[in-house]
Computed example of a mutant assay.
Amino acid sequence: MSTQPTRESIARLIDHTLLKPEATPEQVAALAAEAGELGTFSICVSPSLLPVSVPAGVKVATVCGFPSGAHKPEVKAAEAARSVRDGADEVDMVIDLAQALTGRFEAVEAEIRAVREACPTDGEHPVLLKVIIESAALTDEQIVGCCEAAERAGADFVKTSTGFHPAGGASVEAVALMRRTVGDRLGVKASGGIRTTEAALAMVEAGASRLGLSGSKAVLDGLGD
């Protein structure tokens, strides 16, 4: 970051996340309340838990094709459209990882475009689309290919990870490569395994403009008041 990060500035980069499959509506309500107290940008929850009430100034993000990405494009598009109807401001979609691993980036682009078309970019409720590429499972060349496909398809962000893949979550190296690939044209979200203040700051320094965190309070507490 060009200026010294503060608790408030980092909080405004955070998608305060609860994506455990056993999460309950009561836990999501508590997550939303904590997001308001911490000043995070949004909460990120599973689509089955929408709609959800959030404090003023807090956005609602959800996931699509989560966590495997192994869904037909039309299924992902339908899921995204339903989430938008249920009040989602942002949709984090998982790509079909097999297509990326085999170099079929036109197919990756096509499925992202299908979800983009289901998420309106204008009108009263423009929806921001993030594309989860599972960077830890990809080579550098494949990361670049996915980022380029996401940009061609009209995505707003590229995102490292679901946090559920056995290959791992975000890395500083992947975030930096993603940022170099998309420049200032797209956002970069670092997510998966970021549990400390130091790790979060390293991701921001590498180029992350959004952070997916489940332990947001602990990370922010490391920045003081």
Rank of each mutant, 00 (worst) to 15 (best):
L213T: 07
P126R: 12
A153Y: 12
S216Q: 08
A170W: 00
A167C: 11
V172E: 14
V131S: 09
E198L: 11
R195S: 13
S191G: 14
A206L: 14
G215P: 03
D140Q: 13
D184P: 03
A208C: 07
T197L: 07
E141Y: 01
G207H: 06
G183T: 11
D156N: 15
A174Y: 01
L201F: 10
L211M: 11
V127D: 01
T196L: 12
G163V: 05
M203K: 08
G212N: 01
K189F: 05
L128V: 15
L213K: 07
R185C: 10
T160K: 03
I133G: 03
G145T: 04
V182A: 04
S216D: 04
A206F: 02
E124W: 02
R185I: 12
S216K: 06
E198I: 03
R210A: 04
D184W: 06
T139H: 13
S171T: 15
V204T: 05
L177Y: 00
G154D: 09
V131E: 06
S209R: 12
A202E: 15
G168Q: 10
E148I: 13
T181V: 13
A199I: 01
A174P: 05
F157H: 00
T162L: 08
S161M: 09
F164H: 12
R180V: 10
S214V: 07
G212S: 10
H165I: 05
L211C: 07
E141C: 03
G168T: 12
V175E: 01
S171V: 03
I132S: 02
G207A: 08
G193C: 14
R152C: 09
A190N: 02
H125C: 11
L211K: 03
L211Y: 02
L213F: 08
V204R: 02
